[in-house]
């Protein structure tokens, strides 16, 4: 029984040492702890729905995407075509360098109208870019994603 107690004590010491080492190592980068871009801005689905392709993002608290830095381009099939993206109204912000602009927080759904008569898009190239409120911005992200058919 006593020996088990010593083993527990030893384990706690080792865990404590590792934790101390983590805190120590984090001191070597000053600034906020940030999420990876793919966690901060999660493109969770791309789905054909009637005459549209719907793309959904989940945006982590404290992070935002710029409306004007969203772009969409059909990749497959080569003849696929999409209309002008329909984007929701974002939050208005004034940027000292870029003027009045719109940003999205929490969630974003973009609708891309499918062009009648053209083959339905199966693969899209999507670009987006965002920042953290902590004062750090991420490089533009480019993803080539498969578009799923709407569930029946």
């Amino acid at each position: 029984m006593k020996i088990r107690g010593y083993v527990v004590l030893s384990s706690m010491f080792l865990i404590g040492s590792a934790t101390a080492a983590d805190v120590w190592s984090k001191k070597s980068v000053a600034g906020p702890d940030l999420l990876p871009a793919d966690t901060a801005f999660q493109l969770v689905s791309a789905q054909r729905d009637g005459d549209n392709v719907k793309l959904d993002w989940v945006i982590a608290p404290g992070y935002y995407l710029y409306r004007k830095r969203l772009s969409f381009e059909p990749v497959q099939p080569a003849q696929a075509h999409i209309g002008a993206p329909q984007l929701p109204k974002g939050e208005n912000v004034h940027d000292e360098h870029f003027g009045d602009t719109e940003i999205y927080r929490e969630t974003l759904q973009a609708k891309l109208p499918l062009t009648k008569g053209a083959p339905a898009v199966q693969q899209l190239r999507v670009r987006y870019q965002g920042c953290a409120d902590a004062g750090v911005c991420y490089p533009p992200v480019t993803r080539v994603i498969d578009v799923a058919a709407a569930p029946r």
Binding site: S10, F13, L14, G16, S17, A18, A20, A21, D22, W24, S25, K26, S28, V29, G31, P32, D33, L34, P36
Partner: peptide, 25 residues
């Protein structure tokens, strides 16, 4: 054992330096 673990942990972290991520360099 704890002190040895701490030392080994530090050495490993040091070796991983060039590819360290934000907040864990």
């Amino acid at each position: 054992a704890g002190a040895a673990g701490f030392g080994i942990y530090h050495l490993q972290k040091g070796a991983a330096a060039p590819a360290a991520a934000i907040g864990s360099a």
